[in-house]
Design a protein around this nucleic acid. Structure first.
Lengths: 230, 230
DNA sequence: TTTTTCTAGTGATCTAAATCATTAAATTCA
DNA sequence: TGAATTTAATGATTTAGATCACTAGAAAAA
């Protein structure tokens, strides 16, 4: 895919991720072999089964990682936030992406040439170590996701999503959901109808206010409990 | 945990994993800071929330990685087979294990001191690169597991498990299941009753023969289709 | 040996959530 | 601007699989 023509820009050192682990030559090398690409909300960043060519690092915006299963059912595995690698997950494992990514909001992404990136890793064990750590953390995220999906029922999973957006993304009890009902469903591993009903229940129980995509969490206590006890 | 007293043995070079990526000094270093521990079937290797102290590499036997959720419900995330790292998943991410491991069959595991292992990684970018690759592959496994759990219903998931043991572990259409019905359920993300019923259906439909833990797959065609189409 | 515990199996019942069908409102597009 | 397409919402119905309750045999412990 990658239909977007890369708009090359001047990159300051600070734009290279984890540059504190790199020598100035390595920063220079990566800098010369990377560029920032802008995406609009809803743009596809890459599609499953296309070749991996770059390591991507989110500078701004929210990205969803998803996969289409049979009968067109989509799962959103993860929402990736700024200052995180996008494609670290499979880039070392596979030649082609096993999943797709698309922009939820407008986004800027640093594309780093994969060969360059790999060469830096091979030269720089500390940097490699750091990446191992990031990848491990990622792995643990999927452990938790698997537990949640398997053990919690819908209200718990929805509460978890509300907490994620409130705490991790917006840091506020009030926010505008960047996802449609269908997308929330894909993230919760359910259907849009069930999401609508669960959110309506939360509203009836005065746990949240909701009007379209506007959300206000009234009782973090209850949402926390729901999220924990599933 | 680790109640087992380490029985130190002479280690040949070939016992050090991926030694082709290491210098002879590094092999020596790891060799001097590791030892093989024997476990009996059902022994706990480590428990969640205990401190990580070693990198573990399976020499022989089958190990299950599991986590206990609330209401004591257990999920088996993965079965790990010989010549694979056991604890690569979280060892770089966390100070304590987020999951438990126990031996399904008798097993021999190479315990490598974690500080030694980390020092080798930092010195040796190629080796670090290899580990990144292994960790990425692991990550993709969890993507698939999440998809399966979410999209396939029980007969598909059970078919998948039968295929896994038949193809990956025993390489035969006939085998003795190393897991109890409850454990199969934990691997399939369901209950023992549902597993028993699904296996009984497969037997009725002549897809498999089953007698206790003895399994014979009669129709790979049907099992394959079930596994793929869920 | 006898008792206790664990594992496999079966039937009856229940329920969370999926599916289906339809309407209404909001966006997009032509 | 009006037509077409998405998105949100709600009610009715179905269903896969969980839960509950129990039996029987096998294995472990006393």
């Amino acid at each position: 895919m990658l239909m977007v023509s890369p708009s090359v820009k001047n990159k300051s050192q600070s734009e290279i991720p984890y540059s504190e682990y790199l020598t100035s030559e390595q920063i220079e090398l990566i800098s010369n072999n990377s560029n920032i690409v802008k995406f609009n909300a809803k743009d596809i960043i890459f599609k499953q089964n296309t070749r991996t060519s770059h390591v991507m690092f989110i500078k701004s915006g929210l990205i969803k990682i998803l996969k289409e299963g049979r009968n067109k059912k989509v799962i959103i595995f993860k929402i990736i936030t700024p200052e995180h690698f996008l494609a670290n997950i499979s880039i070392f494992g596979e030649e082609t992406f096993r999943y797709s990514a698309s922009a939820i909001t407008d986004a800027k992404i640093l594309f780093i040439d994969i060969a360059t990136f790999k060469s830096v890793i091979e030269q720089n064990g500390k940097f490699a170590s750091l990446l191992l750590q990031l990848l491990s953390t990622d792995n643990l995220y999927f452990f938790d996701k698997l537990m949640t999906q398997n053990q919690k029922q819908l209200p718990g999973r929805v509460a978890e999503i509300l907490l994620f957006f409130s705490k991790q993304i917006y840091n506020s009890d009030t926010f505008e959901f960047p996802l449609s009902r269908t997308e929330i469903a894909e993230l919760a591993g359910t259907t849009k109808e069930s999401i609508i009903r669960t959110l309506a229940e939360f509203k009836n129980d005065k746990i949240i206010d909701i009007d379209g995509r506007y959300i206000k969490i009234n009782s973090f206590d209850i949402i926390n409990t729901l999220s924990k006890l599933g």
